[in-house]
């Protein structure tokens, strides 16, 4: 009985805070994406470099570890019974990747273009017990290139 109560409280706390934090995080991500929209990141090896002189190039890295909340983990557990889309985990991965990309861009602020972007995802806290699954790391890295101002 006690365990049920604890689980119930955790579910409610997880749902409330989880939702709140996710909404806030998404808001923050969108804001920064808007700010950085004029700096394209491409996963091409050679970008439109014609007629442009390169001043400097540098490796840009951004990474983040994001965890899913208790409520979503519970939902995902239910989903594993019936199958289908795991919407709660989709948003987790989406958040992690977008955040990593943004951090990559922010790590080299004065670049004009980010070439050869690679995004890697790995689950880092995979343990023996199933409960610990649910936090993932996303890394984004690229070569940040700065052009000479075209006169």
């Amino acid at each position: 009985m006690e365990q049920l109560i604890i689980a119930g409280v955790l579910l409610i706390v997880g749902y409330g805070f989880g939702n709140y934090l996710e909404t806030r995080h998404y808001k923050y991500i969108r804001l920064r994406e808007k700010r950085l929209i004029n700096k394209p990141s491409v996963n091409l090896r050679s970008a439109p470099l014609e007629n442009k002189e390169v001043i400097s190039s540098e490796l840009a890295i951004g990474s983040t570890v994001v965890s899913v909340d208790y409520f979503k983990r519970f939902l995902a557990g239910l989903r594993l019974v019936f199958g289908g889309r795991l919407t709660s985990y989709e948003s987790l991965l989406d958040r992690a990747r977008r955040e990593a990309l943004l951090r990559m861009k922010e790590s080299v602020k004065n670049a004009d273009i980010y070439l050869n972007v690679r995004i890697e995802t790995s689950s880092i806290s995979k343990g023996r017990n199933e409960k610990s699954v649910g936090s993932i790391e996303a890394v984004a890295y690229s070569t940040a290139v700065k052009f000479k101002e075209v006169s």
Binding site: F17, G18, H25, S63, T64, V65, S67, D69
Partner: peptide, 22 residues
């Protein structure tokens, strides 16, 4: 991180750890 696992969100400790290691 264990606490954060309940409410979700970024695990700053882990993020920093991995950044330093990288």
């Amino acid at each position: 991180a264990g606490l954060k696992n309940i409410v979700g969100g970024e695990l700053k400790g882990y993020s920093e750890l991995l950044q330093e290691s990288r």
